[in-house]
């Protein structure tokens, strides 16, 4: 056995010239790719704490210059950001709860081979991945239900995502053995009890994946809010970000005391960099820890496609 392993390592160690060139080139390419992805993010961080005049003149490249937290101070003075944050947190919590509850229950039912009509239901759901009424008819339905300008307009029309339903169903099918159900049924366990007491405790990874996928969608979504909400008090963070980042509307409370137009422009840019960081902070903090769950979710989805 050990002989075999040794042979094998020797065998891996013997590399042809061509393979060596390939390895070097590969390392070079991937490191380049990584820098291309990383640098813009890094630049936003350093630009958000540098003196805006240096950023404006292109003197900030690798590290922050003349560190200042003025941008963040101005951001946190602004009421809109806080309202947006509060709204987004509420929408994300309530929305994710509705999403996960519906998705897991439906996915479990669909994963049961003894559910009569499961193929019909599956087809009914999958069909909507390729055919939909489109923007206008959906808007009219939401409007007729009286949901416009309420939080529910952001939650109910997105209650279940077909893709996540497939991911969860695939997970249940591959992890809950049929024998488990049989023996539970033998003991007179009802379906609800089985789902609640046995299936869910065995399915913590998929619950985590679902929570994360849905929560990120809610956190990042802006278009539903754009079409369904008119009341500024209800605006989620992403809409506030849009007005600051894209429509260039840093509010009076942010720039009121700055005199010259040029200085206003530079501080507006400083605020933009800061706002990007503020919006991404929850995810940036969590990302390294939850990354593997996302990957797991994406992979479960790919097994069955």
């Amino acid at each position: 056995m050990s002989n075999f392993v040794m042979n094998r390592t020797k065998f891996w160690a013997r590399k042809s010239r061509e393979d060596k060139i390939f390895d070097v080139l590969n390392l070079f390419l991937l490191s380049g790719l990584m820098l291309v992805v990383l640098y813009p993010l890094y630049f936003v961080v350093i630009a958000s704490i540098s003196n805006p005049d240096y950023v404006y003149n292109g003197e900030v490249w690798l590290y922050p210059k003349d560190i200042t937290f003025e941008g963040y101070q101005r951001i946190f003075q602004d009421g809109r950001i806080w309202t947006g944050y509060k709204n987004t947190v509420i929408y994300t919590l309530v929305g994710t709860f509705v999403n996960v509850a519906l998705t897991l229950m439906a996915a479990y039912a669909l994963s049961r081979k003894d559910l009569a009509g499961r193929n019909f239901f599956m087809f009914m759901f999958l069909f909507t991945m390729f055919f939909s009424g489109g923007l206008i008819p959906t808007y009219l339905v939401v409007k007729n239900l009286g949901l416009v300008n309420t939080m529910w307009a952001l939650i109910l029309p997105k209650a279940v995502a077909v893709w996540n339903l497939i991911v969860a169903k695939t997970f249940f099918q591959s992890t809950i053995p049929d024998e488990l159900l049989e023996s539970a049924q033998m003991d007179g366990c009802s379906n609800t009890k089985f789902f609640w007491k046995i299936v869910l405790p065995l399915s913590k990874p998929i619950v985590a994946v679902m929570v994360l996928f849905y929560a990120v969608t809610h956190w990042n979504s802006f278009f539903d809010a754009l079409i369904y909400l008119n009341d500024e008090e209800l605006y989620p963070l992403q809409l506030v970000l849009r007005s600051i980042l894209i429509q260039n509307e840093a509010s009076a409370s942010m720039l009121g005391d700055v005199e010259s137009f040029a200085a206003q422009q530079r501080i507006a840019d400083l605020i933009k960099y800061g706002v990007i960081i503020v919006a991404a902070v929850p995810l940036l903090i969590l990302y390294p820890f939850i990354q593997k769950y996302f990957v797991k979710g994406a992979m479960i989805g790919s097994i069955k496609g």
Partner: peptide, 12 residues
């Protein structure tokens, strides 16, 4: 959910 937010709009 699918009937209200997907199939009724298709009819719409």
């Amino acid at each position: 959910y699918f009937i209200i937010f997907h199939y009724i709009p298709m009819y719409g």
